[in-house]
Amino acid sequence: MIELERLRKEFRAPGGRTTLAVDDVSLTVQRSETVVIVGESGSGKTTLTRLLLGLLRPTSGTVRINGVDLATSSGADMKRLRREMQVVFQDPYSSMNPKLRVVDIVAEPLVTHEPKARGRAGRAWREARVDELLSAVGLEPGAARRYPHEFSGGQRQRISIARALALNPSIVVLDEPTSALDVSVQAQVLDLLAALKRELGLTYVFVTHNLAVASQIADRVAVMKDGAVVEIGPAGTLFEQPQHEYTRTLLDAVPVPDPSRSRLRAARSRVAR
């Protein structure tokens, strides 16, 4: 469904210095699969999603979605792909126009892509579709008439998800969708994403720095460092038997919510003794 082949992206700074943000990445994502891209800041994970979404042009290499090469696709193909592929960002507030009501935020992609959703004539259809979407993400229909600032972070993220689903996409790219949320809210949003995936047969490309979150939702995990994928594999295998040194370092650094398994605590009591 998604094929990335030998993808490279260089950024050139005004001073002439270049940064290789994505370094020779090849990756495929199957239909209805959740591939999680993990990495620390500066690893290139967000740049990779931007290349995949066609928001950035690669320096070299190809991105193919459903067999269509983004670089050589026609305008019509590209428009179709943009319906197929939606995105949810980390900060739901900065990705919404604060002056619009929720109904108009969620309806934006509909108005862009569906003639029948436009104008006064399309209003009834548009609002019915928005109600349907809001209920799918667990919000009350009354939410449609309100503004983004009236909602909590978790609810706003549900609105972002509703908007992403408006056009029945097959692929949803999620860039740190729960990183700004409290843990209890994060758990609810992750549950929602899992339920939506089951119901709608979605394919997820999920970017996160949180390995615990990755381990819970991934079918496969790609570990990125300095622009390159250093290891990729099924979630179970990768977390149980990490092959790459860097994956092990990352896994070891994740604090475990259990004092009896804390390495730092163990090391400290050894010193104290």
Binding site: S184, Q186, A187, S215, E240, L251, V254
Partner: peptide, 11 residues
Amino acid sequence: LLAATPRLAGA
């Protein structure tokens, strides 16, 4: 809170 804290599965 403890239940909602994500843990590394299978680590």
